[in-house]
Design a binder for these strands. Sequence first.
DNA 1: CAACACAGGTCCTCAGACAACCTGAGAGGT
DNA 2: ACCTCTCAGGTTGTCTGAGGACCTGTGTTG
Lengths: 231, 231
Amino acid sequence: MPLGMLRATPLVEQATEHLREQITGGHWPIGTRLPGENALAKTLGVGRSTVREALRALAGAGLVQARQGSGVFVIATEPADDWATRLRRAAITDVYEVRMMVETQAARLAATRRTDDDLASLEAALQARRAAAGGDDGDFVDADIALHAAVVAAARNPVLDDLFAEFAPRLRGRLVDLVELLGLRHTDPNPGDDAHAALVDAIRRGDGEAASGILQAELEQTLALLHRDVT
Amino acid sequence: MPLGMLRATPLVEQATEHLREQITGGHWPIGTRLPGENALAKTLGVGRSTVREALRALAGAGLVQARQGSGVFVIATEPADDWATRLRRAAITDVYEVRMMVETQAARLAATRRTDDDLASLEAALQARRAAAGGDDGDFVDADIALHAAVVAAARNPVLDDLFAEFAPRLRGRLVDLVELLGLRHTDPNPGDDAHAALVDAIRRGDGEAASGILQAELEQTLALLHRDVT
DNA sequence: CAACACAGGTCCTCAGACAACCTGAGAGGT
DNA sequence: ACCTCTCAGGTTGTCTGAGGACCTGTGTTG
């Protein structure tokens, strides 16, 4: 099925794309009133309905807004940049640094707010991290991240949970690379186990200072590796 | 202009919304083929063109995709949740707490990383906050937020800047309310000026511990007010 | 100067006609 | 029995026309 899978792109999609490019390309800044439907139909060489549908698609994408009798206005020149995109573009060391700030504070809160359920989750995550020591680098990093997520969850602040969840995927790939490239698990397949056990214990004991300090030391070490990796 | 400002919502928008709710409400899971245009027109009591435009809007929003001859299929059940929406839904105290964590750490970094330009910006923002003391509560809160943003910017981590910029709009309205309802500016139209001047000075001197401590005290006080406000 | 009316332009809705495409069922051939 | 082809019915895509609702700017009147 070489060419049979190819379909002509519907005119309305082509028109949508063309108009979108005019907007995102800066030809129509925010606040601009677009040419009327009839004018656009003539310019694009399509029917008026096709123009209307294209404009609806752009409205659905949040780029324009129609006002009956007035016209169609540009209200955004690009879709709202989501965090995943922003984090992807940001320097990994900047992302990690913010993670570090957030997480050390979360550990402090976790020590005072953790419930029995939280402790059970932390213990389970610690065991899962140990179990993942026998697996590949990717699984190990995932288990490590899960333990850290359990720490953040014990802080009992949903905004923190969300924030950590946004950061984790951005960091995962790089952390796996780091482990592999630097051979961090060659001598010890479960690096940092002592520190993580001490972290869970500090949270159990309610010692926020210790929990925060342990995490700070660990994360600073990884950040230093990330800096080294970059140069 | 009591009722003159109200406009009938165009049918296509109502239809779009109805269909969107069917999708986000779980009635049409991902992969579902929607009823045909003619069936939908009958169900919704509108013309086929109106249905087509509504479907285009949903396509523009990324929820459906049309295949000529086959039908229109659900490809997503909700738009990617953006942070603004999440923050809007979150408890204000949770949001503020995260802001506090991030900002106190940022102040620490600012003390070590600030440039001469950062210092100039901080000084300008401090003066602007003083100038806003003569204005209304909204302007004052804006000037306060701008000073804090300058602190975060001096930490020289773009991810932090972005994060603070996400949080600020969510917090603004509530902070204005707090100032108004609690009459925080009745006796002193420029509350916290001493603390803010000390903050800027600590950053200038490179004293991260002092900067962080000053901010922590201020933000904890406001958080306590937010907690009180809620109960 | 303010209020009102009107003209022209714009978006909104519906209907109809025809084209292009897809899918499933049935018929015919091997 | 299995495979291929054809066709019918249903679906989306495009265009056109008609009329309605709305908005804005201009001109007229009091």
